[in-house]
Design a protein around this nucleic acid. Structure first.
Lengths: 116, 116
DNA sequence: GCGGTTTTGACAATCGTTTTCAACTAGCCT
DNA sequence: AGGCTAGTTGAAAACGATTGTCAAAACCGC
């Protein structure tokens, strides 16, 4: 499964991943794909985002550290970006309004150079 | 419907809103709630986010301008925040990696002062 | 009132995801 | 080997949010 995600090198839905694994000759059930993805996500080995339509998309990232993504909405390719600015902004904003235990999401969606 | 959202003053799922409207004595079908919310969202009159679980949550915001949210994960209360820093970061990052037509999301989730 | 359009909402259908459960494996003890 | 147990698998059923269907109800200009 990790292999399949690495092969993709981009964000994929569980079902897309399943299709690709089947196409690659692997015999695996959709249930197992969901289960394994969930496990990897819980273990922090892969990142999970939600599309506008609410579908979960998964990606194996180079680092387990906190970071954000610049995702191509056409092919799913993505760049991992870290940003002190965003971290500082999030922390400052949370404190300003008296919120605690704050986590943040910050993702960029566009069209990559190859797809344009 | 707008009234109900205003009354809530916070992010709500379609179903929660439906419950609250029923409780307030309004007779309205869940279908209509979904339909109306969709219409308002398309018209840019309300904001839509997705929870971690993929559910859509809706909120009537004070401004139609682009902004982000600091949302309480306990009661749904939220603060609208605008940030030049984030806008600049998004634009610069997109350009750096050759992405075009980039939109971004940036939301903060925490626990508000009243709920803490 | 009266035909025609629009809005409504109960219900069924859809779709992503999770659960169930029986079949299958893998390991392990003897 | 043979048998026992625990863990893993995947097909099919269940689930929950959302959307589609369609007939009934409300509205409108006449």
């Amino acid at each position: 499964m990790r292999d399949a995600l690495d092969r993709a090198g981009a964000f994929r839905t569980a079902q897309a991943l399943h299709d690709e694994m089947k196409a690659a000759g692997e015999t695996v059930g959709l249930t197992t794909v969901y289960r394994t993805l969930q496990g990897l996500a819980d273990a922090g080995e892969i990142d999970v985002l939600r599309t506008d339509e609410g579908e979960a998309i998964y990606r194996r990232c180079a680092t387990g550290d906190h970071h954000h993504h610049l995702v191509c909405r056409s092919c799913g390719a993505s760049v991992e970006v870290a940003s002190d600015e965003v971290e500082r902004w999030a922390a400052a904003t949370a404190e300003l309004h008296g919120f605690t235990d704050v986590v943040h999401t910050a993702e960029l969606y566009g069209v990559c150079g190859s797809c344009a």
